[in-house]
Simulated scan of single mutants.
Amino acid sequence: MNMEFDEIRPYHDEELPQIYEELIADPAFQQVASAVFPEVPFEALAQKMRTCKTKLEFQKAFCYTILKRFARDTTQGVTLDLTAQTDKTSAYTYISNHRDIILDSGFLSVELIDKGMDTVEIAIGDNLLIYPWIKKFVRVNKSFIVQRALTMRQMLESSGRMSRYMHHTIKDKNQSIWIAQREGRAKDSNDRTQESVLKMLAMGGEGDIIDRLIEMNILPLAISYEYDPCDYLKAQEFQLKRDIPDYKKTQEDDLKNMQTGLFGPKGRVHFQVASCINEELEKLDRSLSKPELFSQISALIDRRIHANYRMYPGNYIAHDYLSGTQAFAGHYTAEEKKHFTDYIDQQLARIELPNKDIPFLREKMLLMYANPLTNYLATRTDNPK
């Protein structure tokens, strides 16, 4: 058993009984579990936990049920299209745009279970592990930890270890992984793959950069939410950053974003898997400089994600509003336009700032809905798969 990964990996199945007992004894966990399952006595939940012998059994017994409820109560349906994923038994690295802190990976795993497949291991930043029980819970739930606030040297060591862990997970455990294409969510929905994520992935494995990334079986994944419950919080953050040069989000802000994302209405939600990029990686010129190589691979992943967005009326309405045209009027009705503009007004009203700059905030919110369409349209010219 490789001890190098002990600090960051999900728990091994044989470790679960001990962790269950620690969670069951934690008053904060008891409180949350009782709030999520108010109809079930906590002792019954504890007994049910103790019967789960594997992480997947735990996920199916608890997380699946909770996430299905969120899908039922806060969306108009979650769908996953896997047609581009040729082999359902291989392990892949799903690299996706990032909309919701918890639900991007959560809904993906639920949809995979419904298709008779295994769930994914999830990369999660340690800045979100605010309480001890959360850190334990996510590691039971197949998450591995991305360490954040580190010195440059620590960051290099941490990235190398995480890369080796991910290669080990794909190659040796045959276990798929989900990772966001960038650190944190793209606040304006202009989704771009951070080259630092690819550099980290290329630290582990064998051979040159291309060989190491081919080993990861990268599947770009496009996630499309009709409505982003956190849109007004993201707009608010834009104004705070504009007005306060050294503005930093607090733990309380992270908690509010998680809570709003979980419980807010999302409309329709779609996950579209693009084809694996290995063939395109093979065609790249291996003699290119590292910066050029990473730049080309980032662009390749971006095109795959952008080309596979699902568009909703709001995307077209926002684009027309910002361009001052009726270019996409054929994609929505007058009723849909009124509904969307009313929605934007309602969200703007939720922003609590002493000096609300409404025109600025409105533009930022509309950009969040227009940018996916702008990026989608840009891919129509080079026709990726």
Rank of each mutant, 00 (worst) to 15 (best):
A318L: 05
I317V: 03
D302E: 12
D104N: 12
Q31T: 15
E111A: 12
V120H: 10
S105H: 06
R242Y: 13
V146T: 11
Q239F: 13
D188W: 12
L281M: 08
T86S: 13
D100K: 10
E21G: 00
V138R: 13
Q326Y: 11
Q296T: 05
P132I: 07
F294I: 06
M152I: 14
S143G: 08
R153I: 09
Q31P: 11
C276F: 03
M258R: 07
Q154L: 03
K53N: 13
L361D: 04
K283I: 05
S176I: 01
Q194A: 09
K356T: 07
A25K: 05
T65D: 14
A91C: 09
S90M: 08
S109Q: 15
K356N: 05
A46Y: 05
P359D: 03
A334H: 07
A307T: 13
K338C: 02
I19H: 08
D114V: 10
T379L: 00
I317F: 02
T89C: 08
G261E: 00
K290R: 14
F263K: 14
K356H: 01
F70N: 08
N371F: 04
L103D: 00
N174M: 00
D342Q: 12
L262S: 01
E336C: 00
Y369T: 10
Q347H: 11
E195D: 15
T341Q: 04
R153Q: 04
I145N: 00
N2D: 08
F360D: 01
L367N: 12
Y312C: 09
K48S: 10
S96N: 11
R310A: 07
F271N: 02
D81V: 13
V140N: 03
E21S: 05
F328V: 08
A318E: 09
Q59P: 04
Q147H: 10
I214A: 07
C52K: 02
Y247M: 10
C230M: 01
I218M: 06
V138F: 12
I305L: 04
N127P: 11
L367G: 05
E292T: 13
T86I: 10
F5P: 03
G324F: 02
L255F: 14
S105R: 08
I95H: 09
M258P: 13
M258S: 10
T51C: 12
A349R: 03
K248M: 06
Y316N: 13
R380Y: 00
E282Y: 07
F42Q: 01
M368Y: 15
D6A: 00
N375E: 01
P27N: 00
Y247P: 15
S34K: 15
D357C: 06
F70S: 05
D118S: 15
